[in-house]
Computed example of a mutant assay.
Amino acid sequence: MNDAAAPTRPRVGVMDRMINSIEWLAAMFVGIVALNIFLAVVLRKFFNTSIPDSYDFGRMLLGILIFWGIAATSYRGGHITVDLVWTAAGPRMKRWIDVFATLVLLFVVAVQTAMLFDKVRGTYVDNVLTYDMNIPTWPFYAVAWLGDVSAVVLIAIRTYRLIFHPELLEETKPEMKADE
């Protein structure tokens, strides 16, 4: 068989597997939050009952979802941006703006991660429990914190790739969105 005719697949490295895993986890948390809401509504509407601690679970799962969502959007750069200066800049200046903005984001999210760890520790030390079933809340905060840690890791990978391997970033540029 001719090897030249075989399709070539892009090599998936450790960083790409980590990025994909974090994005899948974020997607799973969206499903878990939706399932919790769906079950709570169905049980309340048709069976006149509720899941014990449904409100607490929903509140904490939403926090988890937010931090894992930050992780998922931080690497791709798909979040809402205002880029009037970036659009007017040349290619070299655009790259410097991207590197600077990503470094600022890395700093802010790293500080946020440190503060969130303090919240995890505080809920553990204070033995904060849910209302109905007295379940400790610190594991929920810890999972949210892991989402923030994941955001720091993904932003660090993005920064590394922006500086040393910009061709590895799959980004949708504003100009491309306008053409669609």
Rank of each mutant, 00 (worst) to 15 (best):
N2D: 15
N2C: 05
N2L: 13
A5H: 09
A5W: 11
P7V: 06
T8Q: 13
V12C: 09
V12Q: 10
V12Y: 03
G13P: 13
R17F: 02
M18C: 09
E23N: 14
L25N: 09
A26Q: 09
M28D: 09
M28E: 10
F29L: 09
F29P: 01
V30N: 05
G31K: 02
V33D: 04
L35N: 01
L35Q: 00
N36Q: 14
I37W: 06
I37S: 11
I37P: 04
A40D: 11
A40I: 14
V41R: 05
R44L: 06
S50G: 15
P52M: 05
D53Y: 06
S54M: 08
Y55F: 13
Y55D: 06
Y55M: 06
Y55N: 01
Y55W: 13
D56T: 00
D56A: 07
G58R: 07
G63K: 01
I66Q: 03
F67E: 08
A72I: 06
S74C: 08
R76D: 02
G78S: 09
T81E: 07
L84N: 12
W86M: 01
A89G: 11
G90T: 07
P91T: 00
P91S: 06
P91M: 03
M93N: 04
I97R: 08
D98G: 01
D98N: 08
F100N: 04
F100Q: 08
L105F: 10
L105W: 02
L106Q: 11
F107N: 05
V111Y: 13
Q112M: 14
L116T: 14
D118I: 10
D118T: 10
K119P: 07
V120M: 12
T123M: 12
Y124V: 00
L129Y: 08
M133Y: 07
N134W: 02
I135D: 09
I135K: 01
T137G: 05
W138V: 01
F140S: 02
F140T: 01
F140M: 07
V143R: 03
V143K: 01
L146F: 14
V149N: 00
S150T: 08
A151E: 02
V152E: 09
V153T: 03
L154G: 10
L154M: 12
T159F: 10
L162V: 04
L162P: 00
F164S: 04
F164Q: 01
H165A: 04
H165L: 10
E167M: 03
E170S: 12
E170V: 12
E175A: 14
E175L: 06
M176V: 06
K177S: 08
